Amino acid sequence: MPDYTAEDVLRKCDELNVRFVHLQFSDILGVTKNVAIPVDQVEKALDGQLLFDGSSIHGFVRIEESDMLLKADPATFAVFPWKANDKGGSTARLICDVLNPDGTPFDGCPRTCLKRVLAEASEMGYTMYAGPEAEFFLFHLDEDGRPTTRTHDQGSYFDLSPVDLGEAARRDMVLALEEMGFEVEASHHEVAPGQHEIDFMYADALKTADNIATFRLVVRTIAMRHNFHATFMPKP
């Protein structure tokens, strides 16, 4: 992904006809949350001036301390491929740090915690890189669109179609990831029935953490479009 500046983001929003931007952040359990804003509010988000209610997020603050701020990181700007030019406009996302009302970093923000540890490592002369091996399972949905306990196939390691029934979904996941700036190295069926793996290029720890959050969103979204439910549980 390019290292966009705030000015780059504003220009790209105009060039790509972005109408809405999802401001994403994580709770202390690693669950991705978001606030969707019209594009004319993006500059405020980039300046760290966008308020949200933190009292409803696990591990954040109490109701009487609910006002918190989101500060968008311009380097994380990307357009959702499945929402490009949707109804006359595109939808983008920015990953955010959570701030206290006075603009100081919020200690409970996982991204801020990682930044703090990386800064400590840097002072010791270290730079941390991470390369995940991202795996997931695909399950069938029932007639009401709810996940079942039936895996979508009975394939095994490195199987291919017609045994690997997730090939088309996995292909669309890879294409979406590439459109969002990922360098995908490989994808294949894993050992267990319904289990898949998509490998992408390693990066510094902060970028990899952002990439994992993006990866999970992309996989779940594309799986749903193929009438599957994706889970990242190790042994569901």
Rank of each mutant, 00 (worst) to 15 (best):
T151C: 03
T221R: 12
E64N: 04
A168C: 09
E185N: 05
G125A: 07
M1Q: 07
H196M: 10
C109T: 06
M201D: 15
L69W: 03
T76K: 08
F60V: 01
F60R: 07
V184S: 00
K83F: 09
F25C: 06
K44E: 03
L94V: 01
G155V: 12
S161A: 14
T231A: 04
T151Y: 08
V184Q: 02
F139K: 06
T104D: 13
F215W: 11
L70K: 03
T148E: 09
P110N: 11
G166V: 01
N17R: 14
R216H: 15
A230D: 02
P132Q: 01
D97I: 05
V219I: 06
K71N: 04
N227L: 03
R171H: 12
G125M: 05
K83V: 07
K235E: 08
S66G: 04
K235F: 09
F232I: 01
G59L: 09
G59R: 10
E123W: 11
A6K: 14
F106W: 13
V98K: 12
G88Q: 06
H188W: 13
R220Q: 15
P101W: 14
L138D: 08
L23Y: 02
D142E: 10
D102H: 02
Y129S: 12
M173L: 05
A209L: 05
L51R: 14
